[in-house]
């Protein structure tokens, strides 16, 4: 039972029409904050590719232009950062992870997204399939800015936003769950905002 904070009244109540869309402990922001552990990597599109790997081998990879030639979807989603901001109705152009995985034979149960700069994050396969995850390259009608993960980032809006890895370069398909970068430093292996799975053990 939490003690009452003497003299605290709070003022940032969400309007009723929003509150059902805002997970516990979050507040709505109009900004698009930036969080990352190191410098922003910058990879020229000519040198960019997206790969799907299994057992250390590349099963399939796409150049930037090959990725653009795949079916592109317009995605509108609410996003929720573990640092407590949520942003509603964000608009992206993206290729579905389903489209990419359809070109690879596999029996994987988990994926580890890997990125420029060495960042990784882990997700169950069931959370990046069935129309729940994308490789996104446009945000709000513009090419995705480098500080927000451009040229391309993973977009998995139903999990905390650190799972939507910036500067993504591919997915490694795995039989077993392996912690990624923030997961190694005490953040939750799964990260469901509706269950407030911020840290290990939540």
């Amino acid at each position: 039972m939490s003690p009452i904070s003497r003299g605290f009244h709070g003022r940032r109540r969400e309007p009723a029409e929003q509150s059902s869309r805002v997970p516990p402990g979050q507040y709505v922001t109009q900004d698009f904050p930036v969080l990352s552990a190191g410098p922003t990597p910058r990879t020229a599109l000519d040198n960019w590719s997206f790969s799907i790997r299994q057992s250390g081998n590349t099963s399939k990879s796409w150049t930037w232009s090959e990725l653009q030639d795949l079916p592109v979807e317009d995605v509108t989603a609410d996003i929720h950062c573990v640092t407590r901001w949520s942003k509603l109705d964000t608009r992206w152009r993206a290729v579905s992870v389903d489209t990419l995985l359809a070109q690879v034979e596999h029996n994987a149960r988990y994926v580890l997204a890997f990125c420029d700069g060495g960042y990784t994050t882990n997700l169950p396969l069931a959370d990046v399939t069935a129309g729940q995850a994308w490789v996104a390259f446009d945000y709000d009608g513009e090419p995705l800015a480098p500080e927000h993960g451009g040229p391309a980032r993973l977009l998995v809006p139903h999990l905390y936003f650190w799972k939507s890895a910036k500067w993504v370069r591919g997915l490694e398909l795995l039989d077993k769950d392996e912690p990624g970068f923030w997961e190694t430093y005490g953040y939750n292996m799964y990260g469901d905002p509706w269950r407030e799975q911020r840290y290990a053990g939540d």
Partner: peptide, 22 residues
Amino acid sequence: SSLVGLGYPAQRVKTERFGGIG
């Protein structure tokens, strides 16, 4: 990005940010 430009390897630049978070 300036430190990287001066020759610091990216993995030796640790960052923490605040502000603009509503």
